[in-house]
């Protein structure tokens, strides 16, 4: 078979060029994060490259700044609330979408997807206005619910794609063994769904923690989440403090990545 793969000069050049662009793009993806981490250890009080010296001072300072710690805790709360709501609302919805024997399962899938396809800022503005109309002012709860609606589709899709690929024979076996539908759901389907739920939980948590587009309109006046706090900090500070916050977030992202690859595997993120 190799004999057929003659590599002409123009072919080699073309493919080489494409692969060069690919490598450049991959470097482009990773380089900024590496540079930020390097900067976060800089001893100088302004951002400059290449960094000089090594200090953990900025990391210490992150946890000494009351507003930053509060913002992190707020975002943590939002992230956890969003995740919990998405599991409670999303997993049953995925069941209905994948297993439903009623007309309009497709319509239901689309309905869940719509808030996710709408630009985040439009959803944020809409929720803010609707809240104002009925007297619900922006708060950490409004923010959590709005982000839940925004990201619910991701949980539904992750669980649904796993459900569709489950071997129906397993549940039939459970039914043959006289398991009630609920028993079979609890003892057969749920354990098999756990990896997908976990992966969905990681994505919804990250969205709850990091979302800015919805949060910027719906967050509470006093309960500023981390992205809103960071946005202000980036604009008005020039020390490597922000780099240290970024460093912390990058560590969290790596943890999330490991969680996803252990639960459903990175290859299945797309489905």
């Amino acid at each position: 078979m190799r004999a057929f793969r003659h590599l002409s000069l123009s072919d080699a050049l073309g493919i080489g060029l494409i692969l060069c662009v690919a490598v450049f793009s991959l470097l482009l993806l990773v380089a900024p994060s590496i540079i930020v981490v390097m900067i976060s250890f800089d001893t100088r009080a302004f951002v400059s490259f290449p960094p000089e010296g090594f200090t953990l001072r900025w990391y210490a300072e992150v946890f000494e700044q009351g507003e930053l710690v509060d913002a992190m805790l707020n975002s943590l709360q939002v992230g956890l609330t969003v995740t919990l709501l998405c599991i409670l609302l999303g997993v049953p919805t995925a069941l209905a979408c994948a297993r439903g024997r009623f007309r309009g399962t497709t319509a239901l899938s689309v309905f869940v997807l719509v808030p996710h396809m709408v630009p985040g800022i439009v959803l944020g503005v809409a929720v803010l206005f609707a809240g104002a109309l009925v007297g619900v002012s922006p708060s950490i709860w409004l923010q959590s619910v709005a982000i839940t609606v925004f990201i619910l589709a991701v949980m539904v899709r992750t669980v649904q794609s796993r459900l569709v690929r489950l071997d129906p024979a397993l549940e039939e076996a459970a039914a043959n063994l006289r398991a009630t539908p609920f028993q079979s759901l609890r003892t057969v389907t749920f354990p098999l769904l756990m990896p997908a739920i976990l992966a969905g939980a990681v994505f919804t948590f990250v969205e709850g923690f990091d979302n800015l587009s919805v949060a910027i309109f719906t967050h509470g006046f006093r309960d500023r989440p981390l992205p809103v706090e960071l946005l202000a900090l980036v604009q008005y500070t020039s020390s490597p403090l922000v780099a240290a916050v970024s460093g912390v977030q990058i560590v969290l992202a790596i943890a999330a990545l490991v969680a996803v690859s252990l639960s459903i595997g990175l290859d299945n993120v797309n489905d």
Partner: peptide, 23 residues
Amino acid sequence: ILVLTIAPLLTSGIVRTYAWLVI
């Protein structure tokens, strides 16, 4: 490729934009 592509999606947009301020 998967790691390098998915990891940025798990990092906040502000952090990734901040990197460009530095660069």
